[in-house]
């Protein structure tokens, strides 16, 4: 089975792009499955189902969504293998712009959109910087110049990536993208022992444990203070 992780800011078009690419693969007889990781709520599983793609949904609830992702991706991979998929797509939203739920040697795709602002590529950390493929969406509604400026911004942050423009509504570019997602020669049997491309943020403080009150005396553990004296 092939495994691909797709991430990107909320509403950047991850699901639309993934489904459009999957439809192209399914036409070629590739069996595609999906898993959607999110925080509180998602209806994206319905979109996958509607497209005829078997899907599992995981909501992290009160846990850090990326920690939740790593704790479950192995079992999800086993599920995909048991179901006999040729390709399993794991989709998760990058919620804090810091994490990269990417795994070494597992294809990683970051989806970002042209509307998110020209400084966005700089703000997104490893999620963009460590992706193998960067998909830029919503190019049909901004000017050509803005597309070029945005793509140049992405390129400056991740020069090694394949950068593609895809229209998630019409699917333009999705066929081409799909050819990069699936490789017959790749066989993944388990994720056991694999490593993340980058460590996740560490925090264990009183608020992690359910504290709600504000104030110095309620703060324990790994707490950090903003520096208000330093000149920016």
């Amino acid at each position: 089975m092939n495994l691909v992780t797709i991430s990107g800011p909320p509403s950047s078009g991850k699901t639309a792009v993934t489904i459009k690419a999957a439809e192209n693969l399914m036409k070629r007889g590739v069996k595609v499955g999906a898993v959607k990781f999110d925080c509180l709520h998602t209806d994206d599983d319905l979109a996958y189902e509607k497209a005829g793609i078997p899907v599992k949904k995981g909501l992290s609830g009160s846990l850090c969504p990326d920690h939740y992702f790593v704790s479950n991706i192995e079992a999800v991979t086993d599920w995909g293998i048991k179901e006999g998929f040729d390709l399993l797509v794991s989709e998760s939203a990058g919620l804090c712009n810091r994490c990269s739920p990417y795994i070494k040697e597992i294809k990683a795709v970051c989806v970002i959109d042209n509307l998110s602002g020209i400084n966005t590529p700089k703000k997104i950390g490893p999620m963009l910087r460590m992706a193998d493929i960067v998909v830029i969406t919503k190019g049909d509604i901004v000017s050509q110049a803005e597309r070029e400026v945005f793509a140049a911004g992405v390129y400056a942050v991740n020069p090694g990536a394949i950068i593609m423009h895809i229209n998630g509504l019409t699917g333009q570019g999705a066929y081409e993208f799909s050819t990069l997602l699936y490789d017959e020669k790749i066989k993944i049997d388990t994720l056991k022992g694999r490593k993340l491309r980058f460590s996740m943020p560490s925090a264990l403080c009183s608020y992690c444990l359910g504290e709600t009150r504000i104030g110095e005396s309620y703060q324990m553990g790994n707490v950090r203070k903003i520096n208000l004296d330093e000149k920016a």
Partner: peptide, 16 residues
């Protein structure tokens, strides 16, 4: 990323 064959101009495009 910095070499694309096709540039596009469409009626739906806006400056953002």
């Amino acid at each position: 990323g910095n070499k694309k064959l096709v540039a596009q101009l469409s009626q739906n495009m806006n400056f953002v």
